[in-house]
Design a protein around this nucleic acid. Structure first.
Length: 494
RNA sequence: UCCUAAGUAGCUCAGCUGGUUAGAGCAUCUGACUGUUAAUCAGAGGGUCCCUGGUUCGAGCCCAGGCUUGGGAGCCA
């Protein structure tokens, strides 16, 4: 086993103290050097400086009488500066300490007439248009710190449990999964595309000698790994070419997909619930400042909403509530019964009324269950077979002959489906029958079926939409604001 | 893709029944002030009214088509 030790540590950073460290420091009247970006310059005298290490700014006190005019003029919002000075207890209110500058160097100017960020509140829509600069704002600083923490927590969680982090392919030749429209990967020219005799595109001429796409899921490959390594997870980019224009879909997003051998649906649900709670707790423990900021930001937003649309909980209350309570677990059939008897259904307030078993649940129904009826995360299981994927394990038909599969969806308030998973169909004959019924080409997926041919075993897994988790923890409402560079229809800027 | 709302100064928005020179706050610039907290005060500059076409004596406003964005739905994670 190899351990990183301090003997390899290299002091690579050029003589600067991080603002996060300075703000915690109690050692005053000493010299320090800081570098950062100017947030505001007030009164020709006070610079609010931020280097990204902390939510809070460091106040720099400029001796304007003894600072050259051309330096003063260049201390503008957005400029990068280096400040040498003395760290002192603050004379003013509002901050504990400040740096009395003895020397200021402009590292990078920022034309105040052109720099789009101002010391004021900007709309999220506007910031989305300048996604390359929105990192400079408090809100996005907080969001991406939380995103980072959640990402690390996921690896920590699985690593502690002995899961193997498996890198499943990003380019895949199988388009048989049926998880959505795919982006094609090709090196064929658009003009004079090679054609076969019957006039179709000749993919034998293409880079891989066959048609290829970006992955929509690493699950099938993940199962191959689990059936040897025991417990694996993937955490990587996923691509869907769906023309989705919503606050919870992206064309490029990150997904976590664990797959566990010798596990059933019960184990699967337990793993998912534990993972979600672990990561949320990790964020609370490691991003206190960020979550406090996001919490008050959300409270501010809520004030502008009409009373009946306001949330009764703060962000922190919502997160803690989620940790302290078990997720409600029930079957699709039980959910249908609840929905049938529900007020909005009786009063015909649902756009899609529930009258029969077998229909897929619309988001209005999911929202009712999660936000009105149970008021906490809900795990729905055992959906009708005909609305779910081919690889899900078939249950015995019930006394009325209704066919269900061992699927589970975890629904979160305000987000909808956070997790989708199932126990997998490990019985070769049943799987093959199902594939035939659903027109999935068996020949192409021979490698997947081989796991059922050679030492098949019960196993289960799920997919967790990473950005949806970040949405929930940050209290943001649009998924395009929790990924650095969102890709969605008609937009791949930056 | 469908439903719906919107697009006016760098940002947020107002703009009457179609009428003459399109406004405000913030930001920017200039000056004042100098222990400020999105500093304050005074003044100045700043417009392809999303694009294309049409109706009209006259269009930011009306009509048609398109583009983009927000919200909702579908597809899903």
């Amino acid at each position: 086993m190899y351990f990183y030790t301090s003997q390899y540590k290299i002091n690579y950073m050029i003589k600067r103290e991080k603002i996060s460290a300075i703000l915690k420091s109690t050692e005053f009247n000493r010299e320090t050097t800081v570098m950062g970006w100017v947030k505001t310059f007030r009164n020709n005298q006070f610079v609010a400086l931020n280097d990204g290490s902390s939510m809070s700014n460091l106040q720099i006190v400029v001796d304007f009488a003894n600072t050259p005019e051309n330096i003063l003029k260049k201390i503008t919002t957005g400029a990068a500066i280096k400040v040498k000075g003395i760290l002192v207890e603050s004379l003013g209110k509002g901050q504990k300490c400040e740096v009395k500058a003895s020397n200021i160097e402009i590292l990078g100017e920022s034309d105040a007439e052109k720099f789009p960020l101002q010391p004021k509140k900007h709309s999220l829509e506007f910031l989305r248009e300048i996604a390359h600069l929105r990192f400079r704002t408090n809100t996005f600083n907080a969001i991406f710190k939380v995103r980072n923490a959640l990402s690390f927590a996921i690896h920590q969680f699985f690593n502690d449990k002995g899961f193997v982090y498996l890198h499943t392919p990003i380019i895949t030749a199988s388009d048989a999964e049926g998880a959505g429209e795919m982006f094609r990967v090709t090196t064929l020219p658009f003009e004079n595309t090679p054609k076969t005799e019957d006039g179709n595109i000749d993919f034998k001429e293409d880079f891989f000698g066959r048609s290829a796409n970006l992955t929509v899921s690493g699950q099938l490959e993940g199962e191959l790994g689990a059936m040897a390594l025991g417990e694996i997870y993937t955490f990587g980019p996923t691509f869907r070419a769906e023309n989705s224009n919503t606050t919870r879909h992206l064309a490029e997003f990150w997904m976590i997909e664990p797959e566990v051998a010798f596990a059933d649906l019960e184990d699967n649900m337990n793993l998912a619930e534990e993972l979600l709670k672990y990561t949320i707790k990790y964020a609370i423990d490691h991003c206190a400042d960020e979550l406090e900021f996001l919490s008050s930001r959300l409270a501010e937003e809520e004030k502008n909403k009409p009373q009946n649309q306001r949330s009764e909980f703060t962000l922190m209350e919502k997160l803690n509530f989620c940790l302290e309570n078990s997720f409600e677990r029930l079957t699709y059939t039980e959910a249908i019964e609840i929905l049938k008897r529900s007020k909005p259904n009786q009063k015909k307030q649902f756009k899609y009324l529930i009258d029969d078993w077998g229909a897929d649940l619309q988001s209005e129904h999911e929202r009712y269950l999660v936000e009105k009826h149970f008021k906490k995360p809900v795990i729905l299981t055992d959906y009708p077979a005909n609305i779910k994927s081919f690889y899900m394990r078939m249950n015995e038909p019930d006394e009325q002959g209704r066919k269900t599969v061992r699927a589970m969806d975890i629904l979160f308030p305000g987000i909808g489906e956070m997790v989708g998973g199932s126990q997998r169909e490990e019985r070769l004959d049943k799987l093959q029958t199902r594939m035939e019924e659903m027109h999935i080409p068996k020949e192409e997926l021979y490698w997947y079926l081989d796991t059922r041919r050679f030492g098949t075993a019960p196993h289960a897994g799920f997919g967790l939409g990473f950005e949806r988790l970040v949405l929930f923890v940050t209290g943001m409402t649009n998924i395009r604001d929790v990924i650095p560079f969102p890709r969605f229809p008609k937009n791949a800027e930056f």
